[in-house]
Design a protein around this nucleic acid. Structure first.
Lengths: 200, 200
DNA sequence: TCGTTCAATCAACGTCTGTTCAACGAAGGG
DNA sequence: CCCTTCGTTGAACAGACGTTGATTGAACGA
């Protein structure tokens, strides 16, 4: 039945396969725990237990807790759509819509840990910096940098209150309603160079 | 010169005075450290050292680290101005302006710790809940709860990126420019019941 | 088949943490 | 004046943490 030269890999996994398998199990457990409890409250023993291995093995694969976090919380490259200058707002809203539907766990791990772990903060600043540069280049205003920072702050605040602190209606509101309410905000921040100031 | 019945309290402090003095010194040090490092990374020994006392004394005054945090991070009652329904946005902007000029340390302590310490998260939810109720009562819209939550999320995001993560221009931008850029956002969120949807 | 490699385990170390307890010394009251 | 009260200290404990080293047993190459 089975070809001895090419075993179907389901009977008995090769050594490299087994290694990659447990390594990814460890990474998955670490991501989950870092996202739920943050860096400090996540112990290597807990990660090992969740992955079904010994704590020493985690140290053998990733040489320290910091390095484990760096691998587990590596953010996927942001798919920021550099649309036409006028449609930046809509592109940003679409991007936010994806994150509101299901925020990736690695991103939550970084967000949860960035206030207490310096490397997580650095990772967040780097990811935010990339988005800021891309936004600045398409926002036609002298204070583009500040405007981009405000958009980033809004996104961060919404995701934190929705996934990490779970306050009020934000936690379970459908993404479309949030996007619809945020649309005029993003349009104003990415749009006219000097918005009309309506103070008496 | 000095009335022996009412010593000027500068010569030799009475026992109760001394107690209140060191107690407030401990609270101040705790606030500062909780705001800078968060709950987990702040040790009782570090608080005691910063206050110039022994660690055992901190435990004697506040019976546990949790209780110390509860006292140090007690938020001042929010002075939310319940203005006329049309001027809610401006009142919110003014309130944000104060916090952008100098955010109180106790508030930063709660914000820094709320992602990893459950009691800090509860304190944040309580403070946010009060603001949400007050905002809902003056926002004329069916989805007032979600709108209020978004305003809260924006404020939280801006303050976190300004004081806690320090990303981009947000960290050092003058409060007025931030408020000016955020004005159309707050007006849209607190204003028209159904903002015009500009999707093709 | 034999020796090597390597995934995986186990026990232990040193350190840091929150917390406790006995003790001291000066202020307060009678 | 003495005895009590109480702010304050120092040492110590038990637990949890990141990290290390020796060890085992099965897969691997020759």
């Amino acid at each position: 039945m089975t070809d001895p030269n090419q075993p179907p890999a389901a009977a008995r996994p090769t050594r490299a396969q087994q290694r990659r398998r447990t390594e990814s199990r460890i990474l998955g457990a670490a991501r989950q725990l870092f996202a739920e409890r943050g860096y400090d409250r996540t112990t290597i023993r807990a990660v090992a237990a969740a992955a079904g291995v010994d704590a020493g093995l985690v140290m053998h694969y990733f040489r320290s807790k910091d390095e484990l976090f760096a691998h587990a919380a590596k953010l996927p490259p942001d798919d920021f759509p550099t649309g036409a200058p006028q449609e930046v707002a809509e592109a940003l809203l679409a991007s936010l819509g994806k994150r509101l539907a299901a925020e990736p766990v690695a991103s939550l791990a970084v967000l949860r840990s960035m206030l207490t772990h310096s490397e997580a903060a650095a990772g967040f600043r780097e990811a935010a910096g990339q988005r800021l540069e891309q936004m600045q280049s398409v926002i036609p205003a002298a204070d583009a940098e500040l405007r981009a920072g405000l958009v980033s702050a809004i996104i961060t605040g919404v995701i934190i209150e929705r996934y990490l602190v779970r306050v009020g209606r934000l936690a379970d509101a459908p993404p479309e309603s949030i996007i619809d309410l945020l649309r005029p905000c993003f349009q104003a921040l990415t749009g006219a160079p000097t918005p009309p100031t309506s103070s008496p």
